[in-house]
Design a protein around this nucleic acid. Sequence first.
RNA 1: GGCGGCAUAGCCAAGUGGUAAGGCAUGGGUCUGCAACACCCUUAUCACCGGUUCGAGUCCGGUUGCCGCCUCCA
Length: 466
Amino acid sequence: MSIQLFNSLSREKEVFIPLEEGKVKMYVCGPTVYNYIHIGNARPVIVYDTVRRHLEYRGYDVTYVSNFTDVDDKLIKAANELGEEVPQIAERFIKAYFEDTKALGCDEADIHPRVMDHMPQIIEFIEALIEKGFAYESQGDVYYRTRKFDGYGKLSHQSVDELKIGARIEVGDKKEDELDFALWKAAKPSEIFWESPWGKGRPGWHIECSVMAREHLGDTIDIHAGGQDLTFPHHENEIAQSEALTGKTFARYWMHNGYINIDNEKMSKSLNNFVLVNDILKELDPQVLRFFMLSVHYRHPINYSRQLVEDAAAGLERLRTAYSNLKHRLGASADLGDHSDLWLSKIEGIKAEFIETMDDDFNTANAISKVFDLSRLSNTYLLEKQTSTNVIKAFIQTFDELVGVLGVPFKQEEELLDAEVEALLEERIEARKNRNFARADEIRDLFKEKNIILEDTAQGTRWKRG
RNA sequence: GGCGGCAUAGCCAAGUGGUAAGGCAUGGGUCUGCAACACCCUUAUCACCGGUUCGAGUCCGGUUGCCGCCUCCA
């Protein structure tokens, strides 16, 4: 079976066929690095990291590029306010970005291009657009001639005239048409600048992605992704720039994730209702946050609240418990052989359903339900008096694969108790053997104070951190 | 004004034609020395009205409500 994904361009689910068989070129719009990322910024990082994992799980060789916008109005503003240089601020928040997203289980992109490193290419790109008549210089700025590009509006599904009617665009005397957008902005005094054929200045926001996607992935890429709010104007403008230059399709599939809301309102830096990842991870297990985000389909909005995250945590805990109970039981299992086939085929069935639903537009919410199905199946299996090593191993292996695709791997806890505590545990086992339950309960309470939970099973006592 | 999305049990959330996955919470039971983990059982006329169809949460039309984009924004 093949992978299907919802293409914002056609507004339909399409069968995914990469340009080059077995290879996927993917570009994800990254953050403007003038602050720590908030959980709304984190959503696309998590979502597309998961998309990438699934594509790789399905055998594709994925080249994943995600940029940092390190030159821009907001950075200049931040630099002025903080009395620092733009590159300094960018550097600091890029570092923070990696820390936060790594905690959330997101792998680094193959390439993380930065605007500052691509000035010659950006200038070249703009020059070529001017040469082709798609752009013009005006008082040190360079603008894109929007009406000249026939396909303008094809991603946001608006005609140029519709856009113009609704436009709240400021009319400046520098532009030929109010829908034109800046490719290059002349520097104001004391602003960071680069030399260009049009004087000192810096790139506009949209041109960077066109340039860097082309530089690192070529004229046509397979998947271009980002938050829903980038559809217009950012991605629309990228298409206009790139396709005007190359005459080729810029991106074949466009993916856009939904927002995170707080109290049913969009979370954004400008509304000042954002929750920083850096803050929340001080008191929240990062896997819980990731799991919570993946429990909703990526195109749907998520309403964020502490209560909902805690509900998700309870669910994740159930899965982890199932997993660690399997591990615990591994040693007490034997080669049984005969009765294994039924269980093995059930496990295979769940895995196949997981793959099928992930293939269908990366339905992580449904995929998670398959992991819950797996946990119920394994818990049921563990009710058996005798368990087969093969079956237990198959359960563990399948858990590893599925939660690996979701990016919430269950770590192997090979942790040991210190000698003193270990001795207490031994004492309790002895006490229970002698039916000295008062002492046994006393010791269990002692453990509880140390945040260790003891559970007595038919295969012996197991412990876990509370 | 234009374009688009959403409305499913107490809560979260899948599900695009054949009489509703999963999770959290609640209540009852089993297991356990007691617990814990777990297992079983338990709860929905899918916003409203009309239409198409043998059959609709699922398609079409309309109504109401909420949200987003059209401006920096993931």
